[in-house]
């Protein structure tokens, strides 16, 4: 999708070396790097300075006095809900939510993709289309019935309820990934194994799964990022003690009681961003592949 090596661009080939044009080009690219990094810089630099330095107009400067107090406050002391627990319990909620939700939706997506490509039946393309449309609906359409359904299932206001919701609305994309990947997998291998007497699960386990590494990584990263970053479901279906990180961060920042501790807000924002940012830095290639497959044909 996005080749790491730059291809031959004949238009570019014309102008190499260090002409004034090239310098302007690099200058513009550099300026945009600053533009994209600016909010990250603002968050980072203000999360390690005392509040007084921010309120006196020093948002862009490096701290005069470096301090980790805002980080400690955001993690374990800040008033988020009823008690001053900091963001730590909500960070844990997010982890408890994201791990099972990602695992379940990925496994179901892999099996669905396998059936839809190697055991296709009449109408399976239509079925896939219907499955896929579910990814794109505005979730406002399901908020009201889902709230009632979670109540009926005894999952209202719990982390388990959030896991359930994320699995339900994550299946579409995970199926999309595995379906497009398995479609390119040689069907002859599957057929040969079948002639040798291998069954449905054996073929999946022995033949398809061992070569599914890359797409599994793409799918896991996509689901992880989406579910970790979700706000709408978290805000709609959680109680005070089951809120995910994004909802807790928003409560921390919007709370109107007391002094606004901007430095604590920034530290909290970085904490909420860190897991997905880390995944992006470590496995950015797969992240981009997931993004592209979600929009362009896989």
């Amino acid at each position: 999708m996005m080749p790491g090596v730059s291809m031959d661009n004949p238009v570019a080939a014309r102008s190499r070396g260090f002409s004034p044009g090239r310098i302007v080009l690099y200058l513009i690219l550099g300026l945009f790097c600053l533009y994209y990094l600016l909010p990250l810089y603002v968050m980072a630099v203000n999360s390690v300075k005392p509040l007084s330095e921010i309120t006196s107009g020093g948002m862009m400067s490096l701290p005069d006095e470096w301090t980790l107090a805002p980080w400690r406050a955001a993690w374990s002391q800040a008033q988020v809900g009823v008690e001053a627990t900091g963001l730590r319990p909500y960070f844990m909620n997010s982890i408890l939510m994201v791990v099972p939700a990602v695992a379940l939706s990925t496994i179901m997506g892999a099996l669905n993709g396998y059936v839809l490509t190697k055991w296709a039946f009449r109408g399976s393309t239509v079925l896939f289309g219907l499955l896929l449309f579910g990814c794109f609906i505005p979730f406002q359409m399901v908020l009201i019935p889902m709230a009632r359904m979670l109540g009926l299932m005894g999952l209202a206001g719990s982390v388990a309820g959030l896991v359930f919701v994320h699995v339900v609305y994550g299946i579409g994309f995970s199926t999309l990934y595995f379906r497009n990947y398995y479609a390119a997998f040689p069907t002859e291998l599957v057929r040969a194994a079948q002639i040798d007497g291998a069954g449905f699960f054996r073929i999946f386990w022995r033949i398809l799964l061992p070569s599914s590494g890359p797409i599994a990584v793409v799918c896991i990263i996509w689901q992880f990022t989406n579910i970790w970053n979700d706000f709408l479901f978290g805000a709609s279906f959680s109680d005070f003690d089951s809120q995910p990180m994004t909802v807790a961060l928003n409560n921390l920042v919007q709370s109107s009681t007391g002094v606004r501790e901007y430095n604590v807000h920034f530290a909290g924002a970085i904490m909420a961003a860190l897991p997905t940012l880390l995944v992006y830095i470590v496995a950015g290639r797969f992240f981009v592949r997931g993004l592209m497959a979600g929009s362009v044909k896989g």
């Binding site: 603002v42 968050m43 961060l249 995944v279």
Partner: peptide, 10 residues
Amino acid sequence: ALSFIVTGVA
């Protein structure tokens, strides 16, 4: 890769 909430706060 960031949550819109993080972007919003920044």
